[in-house]
């Protein structure tokens, strides 16, 4: 029940924020309608910029474990963290210190946005805080224009992915990849349920979850 209300709250907040941004963007700025040079039939050589959304705690740990195995052709890397999350920043810096030893180049930046939903936050205030986070998220995504958005929840990633969706609508070649936590065996998380309809690829780590959500992708355990 709580989670359903949460879904509704987040959706309302995002839609409320989307409408004005959508209309302003559509009337003022059409520069995003760039052509799409990366047709998948030819092998890509140019690096891909990636936005990595670090959720906090276990979410951060899982996503950084995925990022650590990615090659240097995923660069630059734009990390987004919630403004209340000090631990994630330290972990990102530690990971990038390892990557720099291999590539000899500093290829990342860290960006902070307000948290959209704290644990056990009520659905009414979730509408407000998600709206607030959304106002921060859109300019960030529009400015950085990543080619991949990589996330695994919780709520902070929703407004960023919605902004990514808007970029896609305007013709940007962008892949939104959501990797559900290994903790989710039976049900998708709140973020997973929303992004099931938005992400290009929603990876789950258990076959049972894939059976329940056939639109998801199961390639095995990721972490």
């Amino acid at each position: 029940m709580d989670s359903e209300l949460g879904v509704i709250a987040v959706l309302i907040a995002v839609v409320v924020c989307l409408v004005p941004i959508f209309s302003i963007y559509f009337s003022v700025n059409r520069t995003c309608k760039t052509k799409n040079p990366n047709v998948t039939s030819t092998k890509r050589t140019k690096p891909a910029s990636v936005m990595i959304i670090a959720g906090s705690g276990g979410h951060t740990k899982e996503i950084l474990s995925l990022v650590s195995s990615l090659g240097s052709h995923y660069s630059p890397r734009f990390y987004v963290i919630a403004n209340t999350d000090k631990m994630s920043q330290q972990k990102i810096e530690a990971l990038e210190a390892e990557k720099i030893k291999i590539s000899n180049k500093m290829e990342y930046s860290i960006h902070t946005i307000p948290r959209s939903r704290e644990v056990r936050q009520s659905w009414l205030t979730t509408v407000l805080s998600t709206a607030y986070a959304t106002l921060y998220s859109f300019p960030l995504v529009f400015r950085l224009k990543p080619e991949v958005i990589l996330c695994n929840g919780p709520g902070t990633c929703i407004p960023l992915c919605m902004a990514g969706l808007v970029l896609k609508i305007f013709g940007r070649d962008l892949k939104i990849v959501y990797a559900e936590s290994i903790c989710r065996v039976e049900t998708l998380s709140l973020s997973g349920k929303i992004l099931y309809y938005v992400a290009d690829s929603l990876l789950v780590q258990w076959p049972s979850l894939h059976q329940k959500y056939p639109g998801s992708t199961y390639i095995g355990r990721l972490v």
Binding site: L70, H73, I219
Partner: peptide, 8 residues
Amino acid sequence: YLDNLLGF
């Protein structure tokens, strides 16, 4: 998986 998705 990601390399395939991105066309690498």
